[in-house]
Design a protein around this nucleic acid. Structure first.
Length: 348
DNA sequence: AACTCGGGGTC
DNA sequence: GACCCAGAGTT
């Protein structure tokens, strides 16, 4: 039996049953694939259901407001995925007459769709022979074939891509892609892989050379930087002063509370002397609401503190991105996790 | 090639 | 705390 036949045989017995696997509709497949980028199946599942329900076809998606899409995406992270999806949907309407493309060469042109997602959509929808290369495939191939090239290097990506494309089934490439990814997720897991019951025990290079825990190899990236955020809760007549973030930084376009960022940790007295604080909130009392909250992102550690602004008759200089939002309308705004966790806890 | 972009699970 | 997850876009 070939590698492909073996892995498909494993999959038909032990694979997962997932809602997007029962369709050939490229739009539904696209929805699931974007949601699952760098996201666990269990984390993405509820979002998949809400998106399919609210936007059952690409026309509905294209017609939506970006704010509504972001709000539905709220809490999932990597928010540029949602914005790119909106742009992609509009282009499907304009350039493909609303028919979501299926060919690799077509879908890879759309924003938010790279090599992995193009291979997934084209192989799942029309069985185009395009091997997917995701974290699971890297791991399975690195171990089975004993490849120690870093998976995040240019050479490594090329070698793994060629190998994956060599191994893929001629007759059922879509099934093969599903199978190898499920195999990586369930059997050939990053930690505690199930080698004792593995169908590749006899030929797996890593297993036979006792190198399972060394593979795959990945070169380390830069260490996270630390940032210190100070958020201000200012309530006025059942409304809360909210701020919309810009395009450049994390959480682009999402709503939060007015923010002052400092280079280092500062206490309340220092914060009240900060030039931005004086510019906007001079004269107000500052009541710390909680201690320091550490919010970890993949590339930065955010140390956040929240303060209540008291006895502030009016904000002196209101930034353009600041607006009062009635508390009953807070749910209409797409907020990032740090903020909606805070609001859920401290605002009734 | 290196950096940036979230949030959550596992060990 | 370190690593990983159905990766992609920008510099």
């Amino acid at each position: 039996m070939s590698f492909s036949e073996k892995i498909i045989s494993w999959y038909t017995k032990s694979g997962r049953i997932l809602p997007w696997r029962t369709t050939k509709d490229p739009y539904i497949i696209w929805l699931s694939e974007i949601i699952l980028q760098q996201t666990r199946v269990e984390q993405g599942l509820p979002y998949f259901h809400s998106f399919v329900t609210k936007y059952p076809n690409v026309q509905k998606f294209a017609d939506a407001e970006e704010g509504d899409i972001l709000r539905l995406w709220q809490g999932l992270g990597y928010y540029s995925r949602a914005r790119n999806m909106h742009r992609a949907a509009k282009r499907v309407i304009a350039e493909f007459q609303g028919n979501f493309p299926t060919r690799y060469a077509d879908v890879i042109q759309l924003p938010g769709i790279g090599d992995y997602t193009a291979a997934a959509i084209s192989s799942f929808s029309i069985n185009e022979k395009q091997a997917v290369l995701d974290g699971n495939v890297f791991r399975v191939l690195a171990r089975c074939f004993g490849i120690d090239l870093p998976i995040n290097s240019g050479e490594g990506k090329k070698v793994f891509k060629n190998l994956a494309q060599e191994l893929i089934s001629d007759s059922v490439p879509g099934l093969h892609n599903q199978a190898i990814m499920d195999f990586g997720a369930i059997q050939c897991k990053p930690k505690m892989p199930l080698c004792e019951t593995c169908i590749f025990r006899l030929e797996c290079v890593a297993f036979n050379e006792n190198r399972v825990f060394e593979l795959p190899v990945k070169t380390k990236g830069k260490v996270s930087r630390n940032r210190f955020f100070h958020y201000f809760l200012h309530e006025k007549e059942n409304a809360i002063l909210m701020s919309k973030r810009g395009e450049a930084d994390v959480w682009a376009n999402l709503y939060e509370l007015p923010l002052i960022e400092t280079e280092n940790e500062v206490d309340v007295a220092e914060l009240m002397l900060h030039h931005e604080f004086i510019r906007h909130f001079d004269g107000a009392e500052l009541l710390p609401i909680n201690g320091q909250i550490k919010h970890v992102l993949s590339h930065q550690n955010i140390y956040a503190r929240f303060y209540r602004l008291e006895n502030l008759p009016a904000v002196k200089e209101k930034k353009a991105d600041w607006n009062y939002c009635l508390s009953e309308n807070l749910n209409n705004l797409a907020k990032h996790k740090l903020i909606f966790s805070f609001l859920n806890k401290y605002i009734s």
